[in-house]
Design a protein around this nucleic acid. Structure first.
Lengths: 193, 193
DNA sequence: CGACACATGTAACACGTTACATGATTTG
DNA sequence: CAAATCATGTAACGTGTTACATGTGTCG
């Protein structure tokens, strides 16, 4: 429901038209998650269906605008007042993957963890680079989003390392390929920042 | 795609029937995310449609089992070998909410942050309680999932605190309601563990 | 017997997402 | 002029999710 509410919140600034909603949304979230234009129209249509927005007059250049309704305003207020619940969140694919990797025959858990760790670390570096870029332009919204992702990525790496130590205890020697090196799992290696 | 792949991975243990898949999935992920039985059947039907599973013979008690195919096995291998990409993940609702709260008129960002912080902290405590419970039973899979959520919750709280300090700088006095108290935002207050 | 868990499905819907069709306007 | 961007929409699909219908077996 992120897009739905996001667009709705944007409409509290005043009536907007489709394309504008898209660019505003991307601006507000720092273009971190690109948003297909078509989706704006489908989403707004659904919002209209639910009575949360109304078609407004065409603007000066003849573009179709949408206006938020009383119900829409209420919905937004509600949205901001309600914390995001952990239960309401989508299942964490990574956690599921690792949990299942443990019990699935023929799966090298260590390998899975390391693959993910590398990928996450890489994305963390990329994020840090972007953050520097956002710092210059002092784009607060973008900064917040980026930092959120950075914090998450760091937590993920910590968790992966934690998993390795835990697995190292319960499954000492991972079978075939491994020349008895690399005893302690690579440590968190905090990236610059 | 978590459920899809999850069920598929479970089928690598051998043929299973619907109800069994559900309980096994919940067992593997520690019942953290309850899974509606109906969904197992819809999902398995889609897997069959895509040629990743095949209906097997009925088992001793006459229950309809499903068997994983070669293609299915390949898919699972692929799944475990491919890291979960940040781009592929669903949009982070909390980040979006906060980013939009910044620019939406009439929204008390401080309040939003605090509300979320309280909720997250509460859920963190609940998670810690559950972890103790999982520790006793030494249920590794469940432990991993729980710890994943704990790490995430902690990161979220850190981030929220970070947001507050950042906001405190750019918006010193939040307008009307506030008797000039509470200068420094509540600190991270690491929970026991 | 009645309630409850087991077991299998189906129908319907929500949201997110992409691909495509169609114009108008701008710009190299 | 041609290409790109702006702008609006639609059609179709995918997964996740719930609610319901149905039947069997078990247990108090």
């Amino acid at each position: 429901m992120s897009i739905r509410h996001g667009l709705l919140a944007l409409l509290e600034h005043g009536p907007k038209y489709g394309y504008q909603l898209r660019s505003d949304f991307e601006a507000a979230t720092g273009a971190t998650w690109p948003l297909n234009v078509g989706q704006v129209y489908t989403t707004v249509a659904r919002l209209e269906r639910d009575g949360l927005v109304q078609p407004g007059e065409s603007d000066a250049e003849g573009r179709v605008t949408y206006r938020i309704t009383e119900g829409g305003r209420h919905e937004v207020t509600q949205w901001f007042a309600t914390p995001v619940a952990r239960q309401g969140r989508p299942r964490d694919e990574l956690a599921i993957k690792l949990a299942l990797a443990l019990t699935t025959p023929g799966v090298d858990v260590h390998r899975v963890v390391q693959t993910q760790r590398t990928a996450t670390l890489r994305s963390l570096q990329e994020l840090t680079r972007l953050k520097a870029h956002a710092d210059e332009r002092s784009d607060v919204a973008w900064l917040l989003v980026l930092e959120s992702m950075i914090f998450q990525a760091e937590a993920e790496i910590r968790w992966l390392d934690h998993c390795e130590t835990r697995l190292a205890v319960s499954a000492p020697a991972p079978g075939s390929t491994r020349p008895a090196s690399a005893k302690a799992p690579r440590r968190a290696t905090e990236v610059s920042r």
